[in-house]
Design a protein around this nucleic acid. Structure first.
Length: 260
DNA sequence: CGTTATGTTTCACT
DNA sequence: CAGTGAAACATAAC
């Protein structure tokens, strides 16, 4: 689920639920989800409040009243869940914060690819992890510049978080479908008109997805998400959607619509 | 039972 | 050193 638009929704959700309340407990059922020792989390979170959030790509930074910043990454199957009754704890809520007001904040993570970390500086973290500006804020010039010297397939590059943070597998397929470019087109062969087309498609996909709360069923009818399945019918050509692998990831595209 | 899944990190190779 | 591609990670659901 969580690519840029989904994580944007999680941020809005957290902003309106879990902020500004004193944390009285942290429960973690699987410490493999923690990038630091559980003791560190307890030390820096207990008695503190979550005070604000910042999102870069799929990373959510949560500022606290303490000295550390909490980093959440949802992996492939994560989402936040704010609830009151203990009996409502979600099945895969592996990490749960409890607040003074009796409510709980669960980090659901079915597949356990998500994680929490504690850091001192968002700027430093961004540099250390080669994270680009968020795809929604990224300028066309910076995008174009970071594509220089890349010799691989355009889809692989779109998935690189140092290029446009937040683009994930479904977004990359959707962007390329909207831009009419084949996922295996080589970046070095692309003209600036194509790069501009991809940049514009990226902005369009982000805005459409956010406007619809990342609810795919509500996307415009010419969006790939409605027929992103092998042998489904392309809205434009009526031909069958093909499935392949690019950069190790499942990739769907419309052969006659997207030029290689 | 085998396959697949919307992500990141690590590692070997060029 | 930088870019690339494959493998590893963990687990539910079909």
């Amino acid at each position: 689920m969580p690519e840029l638009p989904e994580v944007h929704g999680y941020k809005v959700y957290i902003d309106s639920t879990a902020l500004h309340q004193t944390i009285i407990d942290m429960d973690c059922r699987d410490t493999r989800l923690l990038k630091k020792d559980l003791k560190q989390f307890e030390k820096h979170l207990q008695g503190q409040k979550l005070t604000g959030t910042q999102r870069i790509g799929k990373y959510l930074f949560i500022e606290t009243s303490g000295e550390k910043i909490l980093v959440l990454h949802f992996g492939m199957t994560g989402r936040p869940n704010y609830y009151k009754d203990e009996s409502d704890r979600p099945k895969f809520g592996h990490i749960v914060l409890t607040f003074e007001n009796g409510f709980h904040f669960a980090f659901e993570n079915k597949r356990k690819f998500g994680w929490w970390n504690l850091i001192d500086s968002i700027e430093d973290y961004k540099k250390e992890h080669n994270l680009s500006d968020d795809a929604r804020e990224l300028s066309f010039d910076d995008f174009k510049k970071s594509l220089e010297n890349r010799k691989t397939h355009i889809k692989t590059v779109l998935l690189d978080q140092s290029i446009a943070a937040g683009v994930g597998n479904w977004m990359a397929d959707e962007i390329l479908y909207q831009a009419k470019i084949h996922p295996q087109r080589k970046v070095e062969k692309m003209g600036s008109d194509e790069i501009e087309g991809i940049y514009n498609a990226m902005q369009k996909v982000i805005e459409v997805a956010i406007a619809n709360d990342a609810h795919y069923a509500d996307f415009p009818e010419d969006f790939l998400m409605h027929f992103r399945k092998e042998d489904a019918i392309c809205h434009h050509t009526g031909a069958k959607i093909k499935k392949t692998k690019v950069g190790g990831r499942a990739t769907y595209f419309s052969p006659d619509w997207q030029m290689k």
